[in-house]
Amino acid sequence: MKNNILFLLAFAGAMCVSTARGQDDLLSMIEKGEKPTVDYTTATFKSTHIVIGQSIETAPAGNLNFLITHHFGALNTGYENLYGLKQASIRLGVEYGVTRWLGIGVGINTDQNTWDGSAKVKLLRQCKGAKNMPLTLDIYGNTAIYTTKWTDPSRKNYFSSRVTYALQLMAARKFGNSLSLQITPSYVHKNMVHDSKDKNDIFTLGAGGRIKISQRVSVNAEYNYLFKGQVVSTKAYNSFSLGVDIETGGHVFQIFLTNSYGEYEQPILTDTRGKWSNGDIFLGFNINRMFTIVKPRVPKD
């Protein structure tokens, strides 16, 4: 009898232990068997541009981003000019993600009918987990050619005189979910400059970032410092742009104020004519629309 009671108690006890252990144990059994995965950071920025300059983002592989960039005229041009609304500079561009680490692009800008072609390569990707990398590092290069009529009769119209190049190194880090920062040293080469005192090789240092204020809206800013003594014949200021990103599913809208009228790297970095304190600033926007060209191979059931 005593044995029977003990038996029952032990049985009940064992059952309790095994069922209580049961389900949580099963979960820890899964977790024990898990291999650590590499957790790549996504969406450091919402667009390939922080505001008007490049970000470390490229179009996802097999995706085509159609980018419309629009600048109105300067705000300080008064009512007669409707504070700049009567003027516009537009760049239409497409950017394609060839692979996860390579993006290529081409664009046409109404400013001197400039065509530009570019490539952006991701050298490092920020990640944690099985692999650790504190930042994303990209290299970006473009070539721009302006194609309006040759206006300087004193100089010969060489094709090469119309060509400029930009090379940028971009290092960015996403801190948590809502803050991303980027540092961008840049190099611009112009085959021909306005004046012999101007440098053909120009170096700048830029920084930019964004703060998310909601799941779909962020405030972005960008500054670029042009080292002194490189652009002399014209007054070139440091570029500063302040914008808001609004994301609506397939589109990202970027509305901004900037003192740069240019819409690709060379004029933004080396030929920013406006001065913020004079109100010599431009209202502008980017519209990003992503199209899926090549669908990833997801096996169907």
């Binding site: 144990d25 099963l26 979960l27 977790e31 996802p60």
Partner: peptide, 30 residues
């Protein structure tokens, strides 16, 4: 990941959200 304990009926699943694959890269990001 899933484990079924046949003796107790205990049944668990664990799914990593980042392992969901979408047709559109942007959908996956969102």
């Amino acid at each position: 990941n899933s484990v079924l304990d046949f003796s107790t009926g205990g049944f668990v699943f664990k799914v990593l959200m980042k392992s969901f694959e979408f047709e559109k890269a942007l959908m996956q990001e969102h």
